[in-house]
Design a protein around this nucleic acid. Structure first.
Length: 310
DNA sequence: CTCGATCCCTGGACGC
DNA sequence: TGCGTCCAGGGATCGA
């Protein structure tokens, strides 16, 4: 049985998982034409009517990843009834975010639908591309040129492509906690809770350290280990992903390489100290208290400050 | 700018 | 077995 992300072992779709899904879809559905669209619950879709109206007839030309989003590049609709005012002669894109538990995968049209399937794209080869998402934290949007551009410009650099200089300046120019900065999609696009913790552990940086507090060397190291972790996770097909893309696909294996995430109370692989969990930026953060020394307490209450200033 | 709180949602874990 | 409670988390939003 297909197992969605986020169940049991804390895995969820971050950059490596989304990259894995996008590559799988590029192989399995690129080149196919969407014949029709059927919708179930639509509260995670920007404009359901637009999807029903504009998707049929379009070919899926390419499947790309953008941060944690997938971008299905669609051809212009080739039929004679195309209405230019509706953008039908224009190339378009379907933006898909898997949220916590989203899955997008093709299957035979005859196959019974899994629970929580909300979108069915009928393809021109007898299959259906289906979107399943129990929690509906995902998002789907049909977008054309300007709308898409506007949508994408709010995001920061791709962590795999960002130069050392840009990474260092983006991080060191902020006062926020480094964990929050890594999770902030307008600074870097694609990093989530798991890979933030994993890279901070590898760089020996406490999640509550301030971006501005990092040395240049630390920031450079963080970029290097972040890229290394993401690349290796992609090679491992992500963390704990089941075979939901194609029959020969293997489950993700990267969870076996986790050094911090989900290891509260377990021994640090480097020094043997017990991994701790704290909430940073509203999210569970796992770190080694010995290898990743806490920043000096910088926040003082007004009262403390008054006392000290006397 | 940065922070925390709140909400969205479902199902798994856990206690009784 | 079955119920209730808590928790997980990406992201939007809002007020401080």
């Amino acid at each position: 049985m297909l197992r969605p992300y986020g169940f049991g072992d804390g895995s969820m779709p971050e950059l490596p998982e989304v990259e894995t899904v996008a590559r799988g879809l590029q192989k399995s559905v690129a080149g196919r034409r969407i014949v029709s669209v059927r919708l179930g619950k639509t509260d995670f879709i920007d404009d359901p009517a637009a999807m029903e109206q504009h998707l049929p007839g379009r070919q899926i030309e390419k499947v790309e990843r953008y941060g944690k989003f997938m971008l299905l590049r669609l051809s212009a609709r080739g039929n004679a009834d195309a209405h230019p005012e509706n953008g039908d002669v224009e190339a378009a894109s379907l933006l898909v975010h898997l949220g916590m538990t989203g899955q997008l995968a093709p299957c035979a049209a005859a196959q019974p639908s899994a629970k929580h399937t909300h979108v069915w794209f009928e393809l021109d080869d007898g299959r259906e591309l289906r979107y399943t998402d129990p929690r509906r934290f995902g998002r789907m949007a049909y977008l054309t040129g300007p709308g898409l551009t506007e949508e994408l410009t709010v995001f920061g650099a791709d962590p795999l492509l960002v130069s050392t200089e840009e990474f260092v300046s983006r991080i060191r120019s902020r006062n926020g906690q480094i964990k929050a900065l890594l999770l902030n999609q307008s600074i870097l696009r694609g990093v989530g809770n798991i890979y933030a913790d994993e890279s901070l552990w590898r760089a020996k940086i406490h999640p509550m350290r301030r971006g501005s507090e990092l040395t240049k060397k630390q920031a450079q190291l963080l970029r290097r280990v972040l890229q290394d972790v993401l690349r290796k996770a992609i090679l491992a097909r992500g963390s704990s992903i089941s075979d939901f893309l194609d029959a020969e696909g293997q489950p993700g294996e990267y969870q076996r390489h986790h050094r911090a995430y989900g290891r509260e109370g377990k021994r640090c692989y480097r020094c043997g100290a017990a991994i701790q969990r704290v909430i940073v930026a509203g999210r569970s953060s796992y770190f080694c208290p010995k290898c990743q020394p806490a920043p000096r307490a910088r926040k003082q209450s007004k009262r403390q400050r008054r006392v000290r200033n006397r």
